[in-house]
Amino acid sequence: MRKLLVFLAVISITAISMSATLGVMAGKELGGRERMYLGVQATLGETLGLGVDAYYPISSFESAAEEISSAQILEIDPGLFLSLRFSDTKLYAFVSPIVIMNIQTMDYQVVPLSTLRGKIGVRFKLGAFSAFVEGITAFQYSPFATSGVYGVQGGVSLGF
């Protein structure tokens, strides 16, 4: 718990001194359990930076508010991104470990680091806001193989 608080404090302090975005998103798995999910994401940095995504699967968008209010366990993916800017459009890739966290008890578990979250996306700048579309999967790098299950998600973010 203390380590987590220190980690979050470092992230917060850094956010003040670096460009940052904060966004919300919704998505769906294409395969596997075919779950719908909601999420939030934060990034720090421009070309190379840090990002954190948090996901919570829901059974339907109609019941999302009720399910979110009772959410206890989230997937949290803290990782690194690399981006390329083309005018108002940004292409990026994101890699992270996968952490499952109980936000009430602060228990957490890490999926072995041989399995990572991979994500690619495109972001369009719309004034202070950006809209983004992303594809995600999980993969192993040695030997390289994806899980065979993919997700597609989209959302909006606010730049600071």
């Binding site: 380590k3 992230i11 720090l44 940095g45 803290p78 957490y108 578990q109």
Partner: peptide
């Protein structure tokens, strides 16, 4: 950024004794 990335790695490495899922 490098320092923060190192902090993430150290944090996750400290979790190595928790139950995990093998892929």
């Amino acid at each position: 950024l490098v320092v923060l990335a190192a902090a993430v790695v150290v944090f996750l490495a400290s979790c190595s004794n928790v139950p995990t899922f093998s892929g």
